[in-house]
Write a protein that binds this DNA or RNA. Structure first.
Lengths: 142, 142
DNA sequence: TGCGCACGCTTGGTATATATAGCGCTGGTC
DNA sequence: GACCAGCGCTATATATACCAAGCGTGCGCA
């Protein structure tokens, strides 16, 4: 589904190498780290050899088992930019995370911002209005 | 696998709500965002209702489709623990660095922002704990 | 020499993330 | 009215993340 899947594959492989190196650096056996990270040891083995792409919680647990921060792990996984680059964070995120603003203020500010930059790709559909639909049967009534 | 799954469940649910809110704020239909995020529309629908926990690349793609950074998304998902650590961000800097805005727009936006937070002469939103430079050695620096 | 034991790995299964096809609804256009 | 286009959602199928059991090897120890 993703176009550059091969690139990603190599990324996961590199992540596996990184995990294995870190584990061995700490003199941990596969089973030990697996136990710390709350995953099975075969799975960890396969992860280290780049056979699977772990989910975020697994990454988080492994990072915890290796006593490193989750971000470091994610950066290694190539899923996050380097922390230094994070400064180039989007306005959206910055506003949303700003503790000085109330929720209403955030929405207002973001409204202005969006007005400035415009919508990404509102393709000329025949009916531009859609959001006024009330929440219908949330739990299926079948 | 994880001990406190219920807690996490609520987290994913909250993430779904967040995604839906953001999508509707931008007047995007499910299918539009799904297409932008390169996932199927039923899956996105189920994500928004907290029925599944998306993988990282899906999160990344959705964040891209919503024009926000992956970090923001992950923080919202509660997967990146300390925002203070990751985001050395301030609204000022984010706005100044945003390439989508003209200078006049930046000034206008910052004017609104300063009006909200109250202080006209903003002391740079320095985070006192910016010392955590991780030892991530970009070994596989392709 | 054999026995236990820890190591990393293979095998085969289950759970769940993600896709495809299609339903019922609502609101425009003729 | 009929009809089409878009909406969100359900139902079902497939891919894959993840686990439990077990294998072969090497090493210390009687």
């Amino acid at each position: 589904m993703l176009a550059n899947m091969d690139e990603n594959d190599e990324r996961w492989q590199a992540l596996g190498d990184f995990i294995r190196a870190q584990r061995q650096l700490r003199d941990l056996s596969l089973r030990q780290l697996a136990s710390l990270a709350k995953v099975s040891n075969p799975y960890l083995s396969q992860l280290e050899r780049g056979m699977y792409r772990p989910s975020v919680d697994v990454l988080k647990n492994i990072a915890a088992g290796l006593r490193m921060s989750t971000e470091t792990m994610l950066v290694q996984a190539g899923l996050l930019a380097e922390p230094g680059d994070v400064v180039a964070l989007d306005v959206e995120g910055a506003v949303r995370l700003d503790p000085h603003l109330t929720t209403a203020q955030k929405e207002a500010l973001l409204g202005v911002y969006r007005g400035f930059v415009g919508h990404p790709a509102p393709p000329p559909t025949r009916r531009p209005k859609a959001a006024s639909k009330p929440r219908v049967n949330r739990t299926s009534s079948h």
